[in-house]
Design a binder for these strands. Sequence first.
DNA 1: ATAGTTGTATTATGGGATCGATACAGACGG
DNA 2: CCGTCTGTATCGATCCCATAATACAACTAT
Lengths: 117, 117
Amino acid sequence: MWNLDSDRPIYVQLVERLQIQIVSGQYAPGQKLPSVRELAAAAAVNPNTMQKAFAELEGSGLVVTQSTSGRMVTEDSDLIRNTRKRMAIQKAEQFFSGMKELGFAKEEAMALLEERL
Amino acid sequence: MWNLDSDRPIYVQLVERLQIQIVSGQYAPGQKLPSVRELAAAAAVNPNTMQKAFAELEGSGLVVTQSTSGRMVTEDSDLIRNTRKRMAIQKAEQFFSGMKELGFAKEEAMALLEERL
DNA sequence: ATAGTTGTATTATGGGATCGATACAGACGG
DNA sequence: CCGTCTGTATCGATCCCATAATACAACTAT
């Protein structure tokens, strides 16, 4: 579920995982999120680290903090959809640029994908 | 050319860049590589860090160290080709698995790629 | 009201990455 | 023969990340 590695800062990976869980619909719009402490336990991570992840995530607007009563996923479905699309496009661009570095033209990259489909 | 970011250990990124430069043909098989100090200067990195990157890279067999006279790219063209192919396949898998996390089936992922081609 | 939960802040500690400086042995060219 | 380049090793300083242990104010439910 969390699948953290040691190659990158944990809090950065947590931000990514949370983003994915939200935009992929694992948490519905408006749904209350588990507490920092709960999520930290679930991810086998220090509560401070999870807190830091949320501090980063605040900026995206995907989560809304209700000061002392918890957090919820935004109700702005458009924002969620747009974020999902943006992340998908970014992955596509990353793929093409990575393949270009390896010396594959876009058509070659596509061909390699299709043969693995 | 080097394009390092601070999100991951520099020496890990250096290993990747060097791998890419070799398998993409920027360094020919058998070609002598610049010295650790030169490359470190070019990448604006501490020589120790570049040295650490090469220590990691040794294991792949892509570079051959001639004890005190420098390093060269392996002459094993097959190894280079295979590594390139393996890296490309890995990028394809990463793309699909990343898109799957976002809730895109393989066909949807392909469609999104084609519209960006 | 009182106990528990919430987000948040604080302090201290350990570890890894990176840098800077330095050192040494072996190979090579002048 | 000697200076220079090579890879390699080591020491210390610094920074960020992560953990651990608390603490506190505000909300919620009993």
